[in-house]
């Protein structure tokens, strides 16, 4: 089963994970962290530590491509083949992750989650 780590600005990630568990129930293998008040080095070290703490494939979800979380995730993963990183994390992506992480291999899982996140962004009425 793929592990998940949501790292974002402020408390976005922690709240997304909290809300996801309100919908799907308590989860193991899904953690959230914030970049608040942390140096690039510290964020990278935190991700590296989490990666080293488990043997299952790992998916890292970040909020914004081109920020400190994105840099840290890429630096922490290096050229490991058992990790994937996706950006733009939203609630639909977390729910998709929790739904598919046991049935899909990492590469397909990460692509499905990106597709799911995009599909969740729609115009609903209004002008």
């Amino acid at each position: 089963m793929t592990r998940g780590y949501v790292i974002t600005h402020g408390a976005i990630g922690e709240e997304l994970v909290r809300v996801a568990t309100l919908i799907l129930g308590p989860q193991v293998g899904l953690e959230a962290a914030s970049n608040a008040g942390r140096s690039a080095q510290d964020i990278t070290a935190g991700i590296a530590e989490w990666l080293a703490a488990g043997r299952e494939p790992a998916l890292i979800m970040i909020d914004d491509y081109g920020g400190s979380c994105a840099n840290a995730a890429q630096l922490a993963c290096g050229d490991r083949s058992d990790t994937a990183i996706v950006s733009g994390v939203n609630l639909a992506m977390i729910l998709g992750f929790l739904t598919w992480r046991e049935t899909h291999e990492l590469e397909e899982l990460s692509q499905r989650i990106v597709d799911k996140g995009r599909e969740a962004i729609v115009r609903l009425g209004g002008r």
Binding site: H9, S39, G66, N71
Partner: peptide, 10 residues
Amino acid sequence: DRMIHGQVTV
């Protein structure tokens, strides 16, 4: 110490 990141680029 975060060097290139959102506060800088955006």
